[in-house]
Design a protein around this nucleic acid. Structure first.
Length: 652
RNA sequence: GGUCCGAUAGCUCAGUCGGUAGAGCAAAUGGCUUUUAACCAUUGGGUCCCUGGUUCGAGUCCAGGUCGGAUCACCA
């Protein structure tokens, strides 16, 4: 029972779809269509197979004999002058060739409102990715009955059917391929079959859905609108000017799919086995994050949505899976942002007998292959006006990164008259002061400058400082130090003199505050403090350093890997340390997993592992600034009915 | 959570100083047998996000709220 002839409450009555002139017109059309063709929601439509596989519109357009004819006519047309008619003989010849390919049966959604011209009409059908035009003439088109499957003998039935079609409806059409006067490949329709109704009107055919809220909330509508959207002249020129093609919503997710399949292919080809470990876990561990909690009724136990599959995958290395991976969702009950969604996709893999350096090599090669698959061969992508180059991943220790990227004025202060010998990394008082400074970004790059001792000015930002230096200004060290309140900060931290245990924390904070955002090109940051890496092995050269790296691209942490700690006793002690931190209020310190320790006690081979944030990589490859644009159905606050909002209002 | 910005026709958006609610697309009706952002003519379409307040009068001003965006903080 369709909405056109139901006896019960309709989806309009129920308020599920809005009632307006356009919806009502579509319901009327549906009613008339049912009188004409019977069942308005038929079960199938068999497409032809002249391409050798199912003739989707995309397949047909790519089918060599078809594409070559279209190209030939295109070449002819491009040689014509403005207003000059194409060679009719050539057209006739090409059209004969097209006709000889045989009839096609295609199907799709009406991509545009039908263009009816008296007794003939054009409309484009879309298969979601590509579109193909059909041409319907009143005099020679026939309609198929959905009840009998046969041609309806009533005069002009197909024309009646066509006139009842709305932008967005699904239609099947059989006919022969031909080129129109303007050279567009089209199907000259012999039979039409109505396949499904769009009761809701399509969004603006030029603009699609512009509101990001509607795009994400009604992704299905965004996908339709964005694929059917006709590019405006301005958009075409913009793309020409910048050389960056704006991806449609569909293309974003196609690219995502290619990245993921590229990674799977690479891992499979290198002997890795894909596994699935629990998503609902008795302990939320393997990472430092707050979990979603739920309850299993039959077992009467609490369960947590996993925050990372890490400890399960490493149990499998104990069990003999030397190379193992999982590519799936993790869940973290934390804030939402452009870089954070409560559920996100992570690729984790582990490789026995490999250390952190081998893992960096391997991960770099794997990401490069997958990026090429995603982009269609390129290792360079345009992001936000910058070019990100995946062809080389730099490797820098955290301290070297600070030296390389921290504002020069600060480093000068830190290193003192002795010059840049990095001894300040061991000076807990200076590091404390620098940590303070780094958290007040406004004061960071600011110095006092003067020209010949006069014209004292404040300058903000490294670039501006450089500019002023070239104009003959000099940095006034004393005044700048006063501006930073260096002395005050040094004083504040003087009580920490000699307390080395704070050094790691300060180094990390300085790095996070001011360095991360400057790591635009792919960069592995190595030499993480051991104290914040409870699952990774210490470096053989320096027991305070973990054999760990994080990969940063465009200031975003995209991957995290290390030589896996496989000594059960040491792992136990690290967990105990984490539990202590938990007791002192660090909610995100890692939870002890006894069974994991037990697994390690059977012996785990030396191994390296990595976790790669897929969504963030996809953002980089699709020039998207929000993780919500690379997740099909991102989490959003539910819409509230007016009454509920009112209730909340009166409660407050 | 803080700050800033936004919400007007199905969609994309205007709306001046507080004074009758606007355009384009889409829709309806008519015309048009190779159009393509089809074209021409005519017509209909509004809870101006919600609740209050100020005012003779509120889309516009004020307060509170809802949802979203940006940003900061937190976390990954």
């Amino acid at each position: 029972m369709s909405i056109a002839n139901t006896q019960t409450e309709t989806i309009i009555d129920a308020g599920i779809i809005e009632e307006n002139d356009q919806v009502l017109a579509r319901v009327e059309h549906l009613k008339a269509l049912e009188n004409l063709v019977g069942n308005s929601y038929p079960n199938k439509y068999e497409r032809s197979r002249i391409t050798g596989e199912e003739d989707t519109i995309s397949n047909l357009l790519e089918y060599k004999p078809v594409a070559e004819i279209a190209e030939e006519f295109e070449r002819h047309k491009s040689g014509l002058n403005e207003g000059e008619k194409p060679d009719q003989e050539l057209k006739a010849r090409l059209n004969e060739k097209l006709k000889a390919l045989g009839n096609v049966r295609i199907s799709g959604r009406l991509a545009v409102p039908p263009r009816v011209m008296g007794k003939a009409a054009f409309v484009h059908l879309s298969d979601g990715a590509s579109r193909l035009q059909i041409y319907v003439r009143k005099q020679d088109a026939k309609a198929i009955s959905n009840d009998t499957g046969n041609i309806i003998e009533t005069e002009d039935a197909a024309w009646e059917l066509f006139k009842l079609l709305d932008h967005g409806d699904f239609l099947g059409a059989e006919g022969f391929l031909f080129l129109t006067n303007t050279g567009e490949l089209s199907v000259h329709v012999e039979t039409l079959q109505f396949l499904s109704k769009s009761l809701l009107p399509m969004p603006d055919k030029m603009h699609g859905i512009a509101d990001p809220e509607l795009q994400r909330r009604y992704r299905y509508a965004d996908l339709i609108a964005d694929s059917l959207k006709i590019k405006t002249q301005e958009e075409i020129e913009e793309e020409k000017r910048t050389g960056v093609k704006k991806l449609t919503t569909r293309e974003v997710f196609e690219r995502r799919a290619r990245l993921i399949s590229g990674m799977r292919r690479y891992l499979d080809d290198h002997g890795f086995i894909e596994v699935e470990t629990p998503m609902l876990t008795p302990k939320a561990t393997g990472a430092a994050a707050k979990p979603f909690a739920t309850h299993h009724n039959a077992l009467d136990i609490p369960l947590y949505a996993r925050i990372a599959p890490e400890l399960y995958l490493k149990r499998l290395t104990v069990g003999g899976f030397e190379k193992v991976y999982e590519l799936n969702r993790n869940f973290r009950n934390e804030g939402l942002s452009q870089k954070h969604n409560p559920e996100f996709t992570m690729l984790e893999f582990y490789c026995a007998y490999m250390d952190v350096n081998g893992m960096m090599d391997f991960a770099e090669a794997m990401i490069q292959e997958a990026v090429k698959k995603a982009t269609g061969g390129s290792l360079q992508v345009k992001y936000d006006g910058k070019e990100i180059d995946f062809s080389r991943f730099e490797r820098l220790s955290m301290k070297d990164a600070i030296v390389k990227y921290a504002p020069k004025s600060l480093l000068k202060f830190m290193s003192g008259s002795a010059g840049l010998d990095k001894s300040f990394f061991d000076d807990v008082v200076k590091m404390g002061a620098l940590r303070d400074l780094s958290s007040q970004e406004a004061s960071l790059d600011r110095v006092v400058m003067a020209k010949n001792g006069k014209e004292t000015i404040f300058v903000y930002g490294e670039d501006n400082i450089q500019e002023k230096l070239s104009e003959g200004y000099e940095v006034n060290e004393l005044a700048s130090q006063e501006l930073f309140n260096f002395d005050e900060k040094l004083e504040k931290y003087s009580s920490l003199e000699g307390k080395k245990e704070f050094l790691d924390k300060f180094t990390l904070e300085i790095f996070e505050n001011i360095i991360e955002e400057k790591l635009i090109q792919p960069t592995f940051i190595i030499d993480y403090p051991k104290s914040i890496s409870p699952l990774s092995k210490a470096s053989p050269e320096n027991p305070q350093i973990a054999e760990r790296f994080e990969l940063f691209i465009n200031g975003m942490e995209c991957a995290n890997g290390f030589s896996e700690l496989n000594d059960p006793q040491e792992q136990y002690e690290r967990f105990v340390d984490q539990m202590k931190e938990r007791e002192t209020g660090d909610e995100e310190a890692m939870v002890l997993d006894e069974d994991y320790i037990r697994a390690l006690a059977y012996g785990m081979p030396p191994a390296a592992g990595i976790g790669i944030g897929i969504d963030r990589l996809v953002m980089l490859l699709t020039n998207k600034h929000s993780i919500r644009d690379v997740i099909l159905f991102p989490h959003m606050r539910p819409e509230r009915k007016d009454e509920e909002a009112e209730k909340t209002n009166s409660e407050k």
